[in-house]
Write a protein that binds this DNA or RNA. Structure first.
Lengths: 339, 339
DNA sequence: ACGGCATTTTGTAGCGCTACAATTTGTAAG
DNA sequence: CTTACAAATTGTAGCGCTACAAAATGCCGT
C-alpha cells in the first residue's frame, strides 16, 4: 500500500530498532516496561527514540493489544458546568499515566446516556466515567471498568461511586449559620437528588441544635425564579427569619431579589449562603458565601479509582464521598438584633 | 446493545461477510461508500451488520487508512469557560460526520500550547482546532488541517481563522446606547487583544456619532476589580456620564459596585452594558444587557471549515468573523434627565 | 450469441504494534 | 570448564481494517 502520506513517513519501531541495533520486539518491550530490559539496550533504544523523534502509534498499539489508553467521560449536558472541574481533576491525574479523556454528552433532554456510552464503548475506551444519571439498562454493568461521579442512584453493577458529600455540605452550611448565632433559618431547596441530600444534611444538623427551620420548595425546581418564589414565601410567612441557605448559588440570587424587594439588607438583616461556589458566588459584587463541592477533587479521585480498577478489575466496588469546603464571604454575618 | 461482552469476541468484517455471503472487501466498501455497491449486496451487508451488532474498530480503520476520524481541540485553560460553547457548537456539527473531539488544555500559565498540540498530533488527529494563543513555533504550519478559533494573531501558515467579531460587538454596544439617547458614554477596557477590538469598534462608532466618550483602563486587566477601579475614575472625573460599556460582564459587575457606592441607580441614572452574555448577565437579579459573542456559532463554523479543509487541504486559508448578538436586558434604558 | 466496455466484487498485502513461544545469552554451582 | 537454570532477546503470527490491482459480472449493440 502506498500511503498517500505526503512526505516524511513517521518512524516506526522498526526504524528505532535498526538505529539502536536491536530487534523491534525489544523496542516494544522498552516502551511497555523498561524494567525488564538490560540497561545497556534500554539506553540505546531510548537514545534512538529521541534521535528519530519516534512516537508510538496509538492505533497500532490498540489493535495489537486491545488497550486504548483512553477513558470515556459521559456528561449529561455541556451546560451543567460542574463537569469542567471534574474534567480538570481527572486530567490532572490521568495524563501522567498516558491516558486521554474522550468526552461525550448525552444529548440533553433525550436521555441518550445509553447512546453516549455506546459511542464511547465503540471507541474501545479502557474505562468509563459516568457523570450523569445512569440509564437503567446499564444496571447490570457495561463491560468495562466504570466509575459513576456525582450521581448516587442506578450505579451499574461492579462500578465505583465517587460523589460529592452533599449531606456533609448541608450540615456545613447549618454549622456556619449556627456558629454565627442564627436560630431561625430558612432553606430553599428543590426536588432533585443533590438538593435532597443538601436538605437532609442541613435539616438533621439544625434539628440537633434545636434551632427553628423552615424548608421551602422541596417539590419545585432549582432556578433563580424558584429561589425567588421560595424566598418570598419564606420572608412573608416567617418574617423573623435571620438566615437563608439556598440549595445552589442561582437560587441564592433569587433570594437576594426577594430580600431586596422587601427593603431588607444582606447580611445586616439576613445572612445568605449558597452552594456550588460558582462564578456568581466568587464575584466581588455579590461576594456570596457558598459551599464548594470540590468537584476537582472528585475528578482526581475518580481517576484514581478508575486506574485502580483497570489494573485490578476484580476489586469490590468502592464508594467514596468527597468532603466539600465552606467558602465564607460577605453575605453571612453574626446575627445582631432582636429576640 | 449487548454491552456485556465477557467472552464473546466482537464481530469483525469477516463475520459480517460470511453472514451476508460476500467478501470482506465488499463489507469494507459498504462501510465507506454504500453508493458504489449494488443494492442487493448492500442490503444483505447492512442486514448482517445489524444482525450481528457489528461495530467497526476504530483502531483498525485508523491503522489501515491513516485516518482517525477524530479532531483535536486545544484550549488555553479549562477555567476560560468560553470553550464550552465552542465545543458544543463543534460537536453539533462534527458528530453527524462521525468525528470525535479530543480536548487538551495548554497547562495554563506554562504556555504549553506546543505540548498540547504535540500530544494531539501523536494521536493522529485528522484536524486541529486551536482555541488559544498559537505558539510562534507553529507559525510555519503544523502538518494537519488547522483552524484557529478566537485568536487573531500568530495564525499558522495555511490555517483558517474563525473568530468573534469583537469590533462589530463594540459597535453594536455603541449603537444600542446611542439609540437610547445617550451622548456621554464611558468604556471600561483592558489590555488584551479581544478588549482592543471591542474598544476600537466602540470608539469608531461613537466618534462617527459625535457623542462624547471616555475610554478607561486600556493598559490594565479585565477583572472585576479593574472594572471597579476604572468605573470609579470615570464617575469621579466625568460625573455627567450616563452610560457605561464594559469590555466584559465581570467588569460590568465591578462598575455596578462603583455605581452603587456613589448612590446612583442602574439603569435610572446610568445604563450599563457588558460583553459575553455570561451566566452573570443572564441572572435575573443582575439582568445585565450584554453582547453575546455567539461562540456556539463559532464552533459550528470552525467545524465546517475544518471538514472542508480535511476534504480539500489545498484551499486557500479562510478568515471569517462571526457576528455577535446584542441581548437587551434590564440594565440599559433611555436617557431621561438633564442636558 | 459474442465481443467490448463499464460496473461490481474479490484477493492480496500490508498499516505499526504486541503476545508469546522459541532462542540466545548470562551466571552461579559443581 | 561444563551443566543447569534464569534472564534477556528475538521471530512469528496476528489484531481488524483498507487500498489497489485483478477478476468477475452485467449490459449494450450488432
Amino acid at each position: 500500500m502506498t500511503l498517500n502520506r505526503p512526505k516524511t513517513r513517521r518512524p516506526t519501531i522498526y526504524d528505532v530498532a535498526r538505529q539502536a541495533g536491536v530487534s523491534p520486539s525489544l523496542v516494544s518491550l522498552v516502551l511497555q516496561n523498561p524494567v525488564r530490559v538490560s540497561e545497556k539496550r534500554r539506553e540505546a533504544v531510548q537514545a534512538a527514540i529521541s534521535d528519530l523523534g519516534y512516537r508510538p502509534s496509538r492505533a497500532a498499539t490498540t489493535l495489537a493489544s486491545s488497550r486504548t489508553k483512553s477513558i470515556g467521560l459521559v456528561i449529561d449536558d455541556y451546560r451543567n458546568l460542574w463537569f469542567v472541574d471534574l474534567l480538570r481533576g481527572m486530567e490532572s491525574a490521568l495524563t501522567e499515566h498516558g491516558y486521554q479523556v474522550m468526552l461525550a454528552d448525552s444529548r440533553p433532554g433525550e436521555n441518550r446516556i445509553k447512546e453516549a456510552v455506546d459511542g464511547l464503548l465503540a471507541m474501545h475506551v479502557d474505562g468509563l466515567v459516568i457523570a450523569a444519571e445512569p440509564s437503567p439498562s446499564m444496571l447490570g454493568g457495561v463491560g468495562v471498568p466504570t466509575v459513576v461521579a456525582g450521581w448516587r442512584d442506578g450505579v451499574p453493577a461492579g462500578a465505583d461511586l465517587i460523589t460529592n458529600d452533599d449531606d456533609g455540605g448541608g450540615a456545613m452550611a447549618a454549622d456556619h449559620l449556627l456558629g454565627l448565632g442564627h436560630r431561625r433559618i430558612g432553606h430553599l431547596t428543590g426536588s432533585g437528588g443533590a438538593a435532597a441530600h443538601r436538605r437532609e444534611g442541613f435539616r438533621a444538623r439544625l434539628q440537633e441544635s434545636g434551632a427553628e427551620q423552615w424548608i421551602v420548595g422541596d417539590s419545585g425546581g432549582t432556578s433563580e425564579e424558584d429561589g425567588y418564589a421560595s424566598a418570598c414565601w419564606l420572608l412573608d410567612n416567617h418574617p423573623d427569619t435571620t438566615a437563608i441557605f439556598a440549595a445552589n448559588d442561582t437560587m441564592a440570587l433569587g433570594a437576594f431579589g426577594a430580600i431586596k424587594a422587601r427593603g431588607l439588607a444582606v447580611p445586616a438583616d439576613i445572612s445568605v449562603i449558597g452552594y456550588d461556589n460558582s462564578t456568581l458566588a466568587k464575584s466581588r459584587y455579590l461576594d456570596l458565601t457558598s459551599v464548594d463541592n470540590r468537584s476537582d477533587l472528585v475528578g482526581v479521585d475518580v481517576a484514581n479509582a478508575l486506574l485502580a480498577r483497570i489494573r485490578e478489575p476484580a476489586i469490590g466496588p468502592q464508594r467514596r464521598l468527597i468532603e466539600p469546603a465552606l467558602v465564607v464571604r460577605g453575605t453571612t454575618a453574626r446575627r445582631v438584633h432582636q429576640a
